[in-house]
C-alpha cells in the first residue's frame, strides 16, 4: 500500500461501490459460496429422489448398477480429482504472480474436463446402443425388474445435470484462460480464478458422491 504507483494499479479492477480490494474479494467469494449452497440443494432434490427410490427398490439398484462400468466411473473420478488439483495449482500460481503457471494449469484443467466428457459420451452411447434410454424410451430387457427405467432416469438426470455443470465449467475455464493470457490476473487480483475454482471443486464433490451411489452398489 506504500508506493502510490502500485496503489494506482491496484484500483484498476476495483468497482466503485467497494472500499478496497479485500472487501471486493471477500464479497465475491461469499457470493460464490452462497451460489454453491443453491447448487447443493438443487442436486439435493435429485439425491432425495435417489434415496427414496433406493429405499423402495433396493434390489433394483443392485441389479441395475451392474450395468454401469465401474472401471470408467473410477477413471472419471481420477480425472476430476486431478482437475481439482490443477485448478488449485492455477490459483496458487496466480497468488504467486506466475503468469505461465496460471495458463498451463488452466489448460490442463480444460483438457481433463474434456476427457471426462468424452468418457461420459462413450458411456452414454454404449447404453443407448442396447436401448437403455431415459424414461419412456427405455427398451432394454436385460434387467429383470419392472422399474428398471426409473433407475436409469435417475442416472441420466444426475449425470446429465452434472455433465452440464462440467460443460459450463469448461466455458468458464476457457474464459479465464483468455483473460490470463492477457495478464489480467496477479496476486493482487485473481478473484475470478478463485471463485471459478470453488465452482469447479463443487462439481468434483458432486461426482465424488455420484460415483459410489451409482456405480459401486454391490
Amino acid at each position: 500500500m506504500e508506493q502510490p504507483s502500485t496503489l494506482e494499479k491496484k484500483q484498476d479492477h476495483l468497482q466503485h461501490h467497494f472500499v478496497d480490494s479485500d472487501q471486493q474479494f471477500e464479497s465475491a467469494k461469499m457470493g460464490m459460496w452462497i451460489f454453491l449452497v443453491t447448487e447443493i440443494l438443487f442436486f439435493g432434490g435429485l439425491f432425495a429422489a435417489y434415496i427414496v427410490f433406493r429405499s423402495w427398490y433396493p434390489e433394483l439398484f443392485l441389479l441395475a448398477s451392474d450395468h454401469l462400468d465401474t472401471f470408467w466411473g473410477a477413471v472419471n473420478t481420477v480425472v476430476l480429482i486431478s482437475s481439482s488439483l490443477t485448478v488449485a495449482m492455477a490459483i496458487r500460481s496466480a497468488q504467486l504472480n506466475q503468469q505461465k503457471g496460471i495458463i498451463i494449469n488452466l489448460a490442463i484443467t480444460i483438457a481433463l474436463a474434456f476427457v471426462f466428457m468424452v468418457i461420459k459420451y462413450f458411456e452414454y452411447t454404449e447404453k443407448f446402443a442396447v436401448g437403455i434410454f431415459p424414461g419412456g424410451y427405455y427398451t432394454y430387457e436385460g434387467i429383470a425388474h419392472d422399474q428398471a427405467n426409473i433407475f436409469f432416469s435417475i442416472y441420466y438426470m444426475m449425470t446429465g445435470l452434472h455433465g452440464i455443470h462440467v460443460v459450463v465449467g469448461i466455458g468458464l475455464m476457457v474464459w479465464l484462460l483468455l483473460r490470463a493470457r492477457k495478464g489480467h490476473f496477479s496476486s493482487e487480483y485473481y478473484t475470478p480464478v478463485e471463485i471459478t475454482g470453488l465452482y469447479w471443486h463443487l462439481v468434483d464433490i458432486i461426482w465424488i458422491f455420484l460415483f459410489p451411489l451409482l456405480y459401486l452398489i454391490d
Binding site: A49, G135, I150, S153, I154
Partner: peptide, 10 residues
C-alpha cells in the same frame, strides 16, 4: 418437465 418430455417416471 422431464416427466412430460421423456416420461422419466419419478
Amino acid at each position: 418437465t422431464m416427466e412430460r418430455l421423456l416420461s422419466i417416471g419419478i
